[in-house]
């Protein structure tokens, strides 16, 4: 036993914002191994310039934002290809956002409605100033060439 044991010291310090109360900087970050699981084919589709929705195998309800099982009847869904043209169901231009998106502001969000499809799809619209956008406006899908495997691999422009 060593009764004179001492921890080795280092020269690292703590960022201090305030002393009464003591407020320190506490850093935290994490990398997830995030699986798209049953939604994966949607993201694969984007790499092939395909916009995939899902259709209920039992009640034929059509979802523009895909889901593995039908929210109305619980039956499994199958993939189908959505048209590349739709209409603006609603829209907004964000001048602020969460920290991750602040550098992209202002950006325009739209919910797209497709002919014969029961639900909507959230996306970004570029190529139109806020005052040029209206409910019902026709829009056209475009795809990133360098896919990121994110829903933003597809975006919309005025048609």
């Amino acid at each position: 036993m060593d009764k004179d044991a001492k921890l080795a010291e280092n020269e690292e310090g703590t960022v201090l914002f305030n002393t009464d109360p003591i407020i320190i900087k506490y850093h935290y970050e994490i990398d997830y191994l995030h699986s798209y699981a049953q939604d994966s084919p949607f993201f694969t589709g984007l790499t092939r310039r395909k916009l995939l929705g899902s259709r209920c195998t039992s009640c034929d309800r059509r979802f523009a934002t895909p889901r593995g099982h039908c929210m109305e009847c619980g039956a499994p869904t199958e993939w189908f290809e959505l048209p590349h043209e739709g209409r603006v169901h609603t829209f907004t231009t964000c001048h602020f956002g969460g920290q991750a998106f602040l550098k992209e502001t202002p950006f325009t969000l739209i919910m797209v409605e497709f002919e014969g499809v029961d639900t909507l799809f959230l996306s970004r619209l570029i190529g139109a100033r806020p005052e040029e956008i209206s409910v019902g406006m026709p829009v056209q899908a475009r795809f990133l060439r360098n896919c990121k495997f994110k829903p933003t691999d597809v975006y919309f422009v005025p048609k």
């Binding site: 609603t90 956002g97 969460g98």
Partner: peptide
């Protein structure tokens, strides 16, 4: 998977809802 990465911001979601309410 589908909402947050597009520009996840609650005020944006509520803005879209009220734009439709106005319409």
């Amino acid at each position: 998977n589908f909402d947050y990465p597009v520009g996840g911001f609650y005020t944006g979601y509520y803005a879209m809802m009220v734009v439709r309410h106005m319409h």
